[in-house]
């Protein structure tokens, strides 16, 4: 039993159109979901914004795990770096413009991606996994100890983003933050779609399949993976900055092992190697978590465990991957 990804399905389609009809439908679905969410849960926009922030983290994880085949349990380091950078420039340096905070988040995420990539890509298999775990603990410990900067275990507070482009205040209901998040998500999704379809994206997929062959063809797998790691860091940084701006507090949990493991669970639940899979997984998981963990946080852990085992056994391609394979089979049958 192998963890096949939806890459195979996508790769079979002609890649002539960089941005095909399927993507427009996908964007339409995202926007429709965003509008439905807005009207369905007007009192719970904070949750929806958090889902968007986490979705950005899962998308970024998908870039390295789904497209490059790097198994990591420390991806929250990139997310947390973005969140803390955006929070610190606001709380300590008075840079309160959300766009500037976002830019700092992206840069910090990309730098964290560079560091993590440089360390994690040195090994393969189990050592790689252990390196990623050691890194996330190192980041966590660092943020915990540098408490004059990060607030330590109390969390970083005092983040006060000013009005978005000088017009839209971040209100108590989180409407501005939500719209800001949706716009960011759509933008990132559009850019990532271009990247994964580009020759560079194809190269990354090829490295996942057979790195030795790629090297003998004259490309450097390491350089390509590093590049992807930096891009991934930037995307996670967007998510982290969005989280810092919308909740106005950054906690140590954004740099935790649990966060990393959960984002991997979300990715696999949705389906690796597909941007839609990453989104599907996040939305399903977060709603599920919101409902179940409200009842009992410990049953929640058991449920996540059972869910994971079930996905590995019965739907190794994830929810989206399984659905996509089903549709593809139906099409072939016609």
């Amino acid at each position: 039993m192998s963890m096949t990804t939806t890459n195979d399905l996508i790769a079979e389609r002609p890649a002539k159109h960089r941005f095909g009809g399927g993507d427009l439908i996908g964007l339409g679905v995202i926007l429709a979901l965003a509008v439905i969410g807005y009207f369905l849960f007007p009192n719970n926009l904070a949750l929806l914004t958090r889902i968007i922030a986490i979705a950005l983290l899962v998308l970024s994880l998908d870039l390295v795990t789904g497209y490059c085949g790097v198994a990591t349990l420390g991806h929250a380091a990139l997310f947390g770096a973005g969140a803390y950078a955006a929070g610190i420039v606001s709380a300590h340096y008075g840079i309160n413009d959300p766009i500037a905070m976002l830019a700092f988040g992206i840069v910090a995420g990309a730098i964290a991606g560079l560091i993590c990539g440089a360390v994690i890509l040195r090994a393969h298999g189990l050592p790689q996994l252990v390196l990623s775990i050691a890194l996330i603990h190192l980041f966590h410990e660092f943020a915990n100890k540098a408490s004059s900067w990060t607030g330590g275990s109390d969390g970083l507070s005092g983040i006060a983003p000013s009005a978005l482009i000088g017009l839209y205040e971040f209100d108590l209901w989180g409407r501005t933050a939500y719209v800001f998040g949706v716009v960011l998500l759509v933008l990132v999704f559009f850019i990532l779609r271009l990247i994964v379809r580009s020759p560079f994206g194809m190269l990354c997929r090829a490295i996942k399949e057979d790195p030795i062959r790629i090297r003998s063809m004259g490309a450097s797998p390491k350089a390509a993976l590093m590049k992807m790691y930096i891009i991934s860091g930037a995307v996670a940084g967007v998510g982290g900055a969005l989280n810092a701006i919308s909740t106005q507090v950054v906690g140590l949990d954004s740099l935790s092992f649990t966060m990393s493991a959960e984002s991997l669970v979300m990715l696999v639940l949705g389906g690796t190697g597909s941007l839609f899979g990453a989104l599907t997984g996040t939305i399903v998981f977060m709603f599920f978590e919101d409902v179940v963990s409200a009842a009992n946080p410990f049953h929640w852990l058991t449920m996540v465990g059972a869910l994971l085992i079930a996905v590995v056994l019965f739907a190794p391609k994830g929810l989206f991957g399984t659905a996509a394979a089903f549709v593809a089979r139906r099409r072939e049958a016609k």
């Binding site: 795990t65 198994a71 996994l129 852990l301 058991t302 996540v304 465990g305 085992i309 590995v312």
Partner: peptide, 16 residues
Amino acid sequence: LTQVLMTIGITFCIIG
């Protein structure tokens, strides 16, 4: 990746 997920799932279940 499959092994990691399966065994993390088992761990979570046992903890719960």
